[in-house]
Amino acid sequence: MLRRLFSSPPPSPDGGGREGVCRRRRRGRPNPHPALPRPSAGGGFKGAFLALLLLAAPAFAIGVDEPLPDPAQELRAREIAKSLRCLVCQNQSIEDSNAPLAKDLRRIVRERIEAGDSDAKVQDYVVARYGDWVLLKPPFNARTAALWIGPFALLGLAGIGVAVYYRRLATAAKAEAPPPLTAEERARLDRLVSD
């Protein structure tokens, strides 16, 4: 539904966009596989790349991370933050991301835990606002059934393939062995032996 909206947006005057903020503010995620490290301006500096710029993220969060006084609670907060995907610097968890939104969400996670929420309730709090998308471990439901069953199905299929192959090998092995004697041959053999 949103596809067409970015067809040819006018250029942004100073390019301070979401991507920019993500790069500037985050703790720094290099491109460890820099098949494509930088937006290349030359010929590709067109609509598609600009479209990425057309959403901005704020440049500041509220304060630095202050750990919870209770180590057990702090550990839980950290684990929950690791399970939630950051919306700004996507493909980082909010624990790993330095995006201000991620910081604010970490703060909220800590607040909810201090308020006595269970882990699931804290996750639900964020999911209610940003959707299932934020869960790095996709919940099992109709949409993700194929995903979760897929590896088992693959293993099963591969296993069947191997089993069929082994059966063929076994048949071939039998065929290679000398065939058992027919009744007629056996009778002849008996005659020869008795003679």
């Binding site: 959403l55 993220a57 704020p58 919306l87 201000p100 939104l101 604010d104």
Partner: peptide, 16 residues
Amino acid sequence: ISGRVAIDWGVYGAPE
């Protein structure tokens, strides 16, 4: 100013 309401709205960038 704190961004808390925006989080309740599910905002993650501007403009929305």
